[in-house]
Design a protein around this nucleic acid. Structure first.
Lengths: 341, 341
DNA sequence: CTGTTAGCGCGTTCAA
DNA sequence: TTGAACGCGCTAACAG
């Protein structure tokens, strides 16, 4: 760390530290000439004010925390990209924390962040999170918090999501229209708002088409091998599904792998559709029909909201609960040519 | 932010702030009884010491910065995952900065980080970076810096990479052995060490097999459309390549797309191999032969080294320049069944 | 074993 | 328009 300080700059220029400080913040009570002198020396010495001293004094860290359940997931990566973009524009720094879907880790992080290390938090909760005390406790402190994607609706904090139920409905409806009647829905276990929204979209479509009795819901966890086993048994059971709708990108990859292993042909024997933000989904064999979530937009929008909160600006009424639509891209895994209805 | 302070805890317990401070740091000069009393109240009040005050005092931020050229790339995501893991184990926080391959942004970030905001930096340089003054200036400050993947070898800082030349050699050799003689190499433009290492591995293989005259090197940039156009013209030219070897994951996706568009069959008309850490590469049509880089390991190893530097521990001689091997996974895009040599 | 004192570097009074 | 003085909250040095 550089050990030039405001004080040294002041001594060098025979000014007081406060004058230098004010010059740097472009205070109107400093003469242009003094400002120029200060700026010249500051530039020459490549001086950067000590952020810890400044944070301590101002009680502002110019830093936000982003808490995500996993990172090897295109969705969260794209969200992060959006957040970083907006943070940078606002002169903010971004701390990243990964919970790995672990509730305890989430609790620990939120606890640790009560120290004033950050000016605000953006979080997508872990799938194992069922209790929200760690979040309410944090919000009660008065520090801004924004939820994205995996939100906690009972809390009084802004949420940015996509229209999960609607998207799931459309995907299911599409499968039904291409002739499927036994559609299995693979969801992440746990009590996530997002899972229940997607599930209800799926169920609603079944209901509208009188297929509710055929519902097949499989709850998978993070353990890849366990998921694989569940998918296998899905194909080996009496009443095989004729379509698979996965709520999580990762599960669609596992499903493809299992189909390969069991020599089940997509889409001939089973159709596939998934929530996925994988750009390469179009290159799969067969290319994967996908619900593409507006991840980048979700990141930007939630960051925007967070900075409004940090700046104590009023939120627009629409910013309390933002819903950005996903869009469905039909590809070979659920070909539209076969529409029979 | 919570406004409980050490001082208040001290008053409450009728102790001095320093005693409380020492108790929290488990100093041996504090009685067990006092420690217990302090800890009880601290737990009860959910007190977290102010990190800015602590950082200011100790001149330590317990934070590192990770600077990467792009985030929508599996390699960097996996590296980041490894880094976060080790950082967390060491009780460190991770700031993330994305340069988007922009040299100026990289300079600005390094300049900003001269303030003491972080205790160390891990960086993979932008492709447009040709001048390293911003990095040397930083290192001269005495703050630890570790390069990973895209390193700057002329600098006196640890580097963690994979065996790019060797991996590129093996991939090229594999293509040659499956009967290819006109192998095009698609690389990222710019002066990256990594690009030249991969290129030299490619060239070395051509040389060993007497194919140097057939070399086809295409330098692509970040602009997706421009890359697409370059790949198209590669296929439309007189002397078409019979294999494509891409140094960057993204280029392989574009190549697949162009092949689809031009109805060129992989592997019948052109074989493909790529540096790629995409788990879904095995699901491509055809599945993509890939050089898989030890991204997670690179992240962990470089973080380990950084923390050794931060703790002023001596590096093992092997830690100055760490090379973790990649491995080649042959799939349908360059089938081994066709080996003719 | 515990307390007192003195800053870390900056920004904000208040005074000139 | 500028300067002096104080304190943000914590920790290290020095006493006791």
């Amino acid at each position: 760390m550089s050990n030039i300080t405001l004080k040294k700059i002041a001594e060098e220029l025979k000014l007081s530290p406060s004058t230098v400080s004010r010059s740097l913040r472009d205070s109107h009570e400093i003469s242009q000439e003094t400002k120029d002198r200060v700026r010249a020396l500051v530039a020459k010495l490549d001086f950067q004010p000590n952020p810890h001293a400044s944070s301590l004094r101002k009680n502002k860290s110019k830093t936000i925390a982003v808490i995500i359940p996993e990172i090897e997931n295109n969705f969260f990566v794209q969200v992060l990209n959006g957040i970083e973009e907006i943070a940078q524009k606002n002169g903010y720094h971004v701390l990243i924390y990964i919970t790995h879907e672990n509730y305890q880790r989430e609790v620990d992080i939120l606890h640790m962040l009560r120290s004033g290390r950050v000016d605000g938090i953006m979080i997508s909760v872990a799938s194992s999170t069922t209790n929200f005390e760690h979040l309410t406790a944090y919000v009660e402190l008065g520090v801004p918090l924004v939820f994205f994607d995996r939100v906690c609706e009972i809390m009084d904090a802004p949420c940015v999501t996509t229209d999960d139920a609607q998207a799931a409905f459309e995907a299911t409806e599409h499968l039904i229209k291409t002739g499927c009647s036994k559609i299995a829905f693979l969801s992440l276990d746990g009590n996530l708002s997002i899972s229940s929204r997607r599930r209800s979209g799926y169920l609603e479509a079944l209901k509208q088409y009188g297929l509710l009795n055929n519902k097949i819901i499989v709850e998978c966890c993070l353990d890849d091998e366990a998921t694989r086993q569940k998918i296998r048994s899905l194909f080996l059971r009496e009443n095989k599904p004729d379509a698979i709708f996965t709520a999580i990108e990762k599960f669609s990859i596992t499903t493809y792998e299992v189909c390969k292993e069991l020599q089940i042909k997509i889409p001939e024997q089973v159709k596939m559709i998934s929530f996925s933000n994988l750009t390469a989904a179009s290159l799969f064999n067969p290319s994967l029909s996908a619900i593409i979530q507006p991840a980048y937009g979700i990141g930007r929008e939630s960051a925007d909201i967070l900075f409004r909160l940090i700046d104590r600006k009023k939120l627009l009424p629409t910013q309390k609960k933002v819903i950005i639509p996903s869009h469905l891209v039909i590809r070979e895994s659920s070909p539209v040519q076969q529409i029979v209805l």
